[in-house]
Design a protein around this nucleic acid. Structure first.
Lengths: 224, 224
DNA sequence: GAATAATCCCGCAAAATTCCGAAAAAATTC
DNA sequence: GAATTTTTTCGGAATTTTGCGGGATTATTC
């Protein structure tokens, strides 16, 4: 269930949005001003979208948006009275994602929320990649295969991480040598083959995720 | 200078948009209906944004958008009368990127165009060519034919990628040998023919996209 | 200095490339 | 429009390349 945060000093507007959003299946949290919104985001970072008025006491919508974006890149949809400067509204330095004019159609707002969430969910975020029982944790530098931690050599980790981070992107041996070994490696191309071989062995049932691109190189591939 | 395409059957609306857009520094191309828009995109693919009405003769905005997205992922902003179904508008299966209600504020429209262009330019240029059920993914180095991944040899990939990247441009055998094989290839011209033959077999139902230019060479051709 | 990792080497099987000749298709000439 | 020439396509076979497994050697780490 996606969570959205509605920020407005008018309780009536919050109420309307909440009602529609609940109907759409969102969990709604309210905030009465920008300050409160920033605090809520700080406490509990997993909002999927924020709807925010511009004119608010304590901290206005622009400034609140800027602060929130520093914490986490949550899509922000601004509400404002007609006549505001559009240039400011969409100012990318503020980071506003979309914008609805007051008085607004709740249906339109809901549609825009949906789009904003969809769009943000598309872009890569996490530091963890999962594929079935394979979990690659970049930060922790470990790999879990069907619940058990995989035992890998440093090079194997490096190659796997590099390929996984560039998922579905073809990598030539030269590119791999450059990126994983470093520019100052003057060795045989075939060294890559050997390490891929060992990596595959370490990956056990997921060995097929590393696919060979004949005459070219390798790629990490989770498609099909 | 960014190029935008304005599609509407009312000349007056096109005129207004054109005026504002010109002021913002855009190059504007007009189309009077969906069919014309699709054709324009096919001919000259480098529009940065498309503004399109929904209600139009010949081909409506939805269908035109769908067609255009097959050719290339250009951001599309829809114009429509208030009261349209928002769900449909933002239907992701259609691929609409944004939406403005008629009668609209030209300033708002300009702001949204700016955002749409900025957003699309930010995302990693998708390096994907689509034609009906054929998807060529350069980065992943794979080709999908009607949902199934095609199995191709390195040379077949290389030729297809080269021809697809130079879509609708005639390529002599010499040029192909030079670009795909490399300058240091001293073999028979007819080698190209054989590989084209195999490539066509691999392309199955899309074999006709590789057209023969008698006495000259080949080209990748998505027209008709 | 023993264990572990990384690199290199060799050979085989499979895959890919090239070449060749014949058939087919298109263009040209009569 | 038939015959001829040119060009392309097709099928197959010889040749070359490539990836990978096994294993040996060298480097690194504790």
């Amino acid at each position: 269930m996606p969570r959205i945060l509605i920020v407005d000093d008018e309780a009536k507007i919050r109420e309307v949005v909440k009602e529609y959003a609940a109907f759409e299946g969102y969990e709604v949290v309210e905030a009465a001003d920008g300050m409160e919104a920033v605090e809520k985001v700080r406490e509990d970072q997993n909002f999927d979208c924020i709807i925010m008025d511009i004119m608010m006491p304590k901290l206005d919508g622009y400034s609140a948006c800027k602060e929130i974006k520093k914490i986490r890149n949550i899509p922000v949809i601004m509400l404002s009275a007609r006549g505001e400067e559009y240039d400011k509204l969409f100012g990318f330095e503020v980071g506003i994602d979309d914008y609805v004019v007051k008085p607004f159609s709740p249906k339109e707002l809901m549609a825009r929320i949906k789009v904003a969430i969809k769009r943000s969910s598309k872009e890569p975020s996490e530091d963890i990649i999962r594929y079935k029982g394979l979990v690659i944790n970049f930060a922790a530098r470990d790999v879990i295969i069907d619940g058990k931690r995989a035992q890998m050599t440093p090079k194997e980790y490096d190659i796997l991480f590099f390929l996984a981070k560039n998922m579905n992107i073809a990598m030539s041996r030269e590119k791999l040598l450059e990126e994983v070994w470093g520019f100052d490696f003057y060795g045989d191309d075939r060294t890559v083959d050997t390490h891929i071989k060992m990596l595959r062995n370490s990956l056990g049932p997921y060995r097929d995720l590393i696919v060979t691109l004949r005459g070219m190189g390798y790629k990490f591939d989770n498609i099909r």
